[in-house]
């Protein structure tokens, strides 16, 4: 249950990261760590599993390209199905967080 939740959460975060445009896996990892100021500590391995799985589901597409320092890197990009998935998950998650927040407030 918990791992599912975590996996789902990580997937949503990855989709969000890609929503501003194509990135390679390292950039995705850095952005999540930097933006959450290290709150979300996740193994890089899990992040790549998430990326490859999102690709298998057709929410993300990949392609080899050249990185900013001219190295061969695999870039990921949201598909339109991935964008819809992100919207669904984001609103689900917001509703969930609001509900949690409300309950915790009344306590």
């Amino acid at each position: 249950m918990q791992t599912d939740l975590l996996q789902g959460t990580l997937d949503t975060l990855v989709l969000k990261t890609l929503s501003w445009g194509p990135r390679h896996g390292y950039a995705v990892a850095r952005w999540i760590k930097d933006t959450s100021s290290g709150t979300i500590a996740v193994e890089d391995r899990a992040l790549y599993v998430s990326l490859h799985r999102l690709e298998e589901r057709g929410w993300v597409e990949s392609q080899w390209g050249l990185s900013e320092n001219n190295r061969k890197a695999k870039y990921y990009e949201l598909t339109s199905a991935g964008r819809r998935q992100l919207q669904t998950k984001a609103s689900e998650f917001t509703a969930y967080a609001l509900a949690m927040f409300k309950i915790l407030q009344t306590a």
Partner: peptide, 18 residues
Amino acid sequence: YGDISLARHELASIDRRS
């Protein structure tokens, strides 16, 4: 990064499936 040989196995099998 975590367990590299596990990652290698996991990622390759996802990619093969897709």
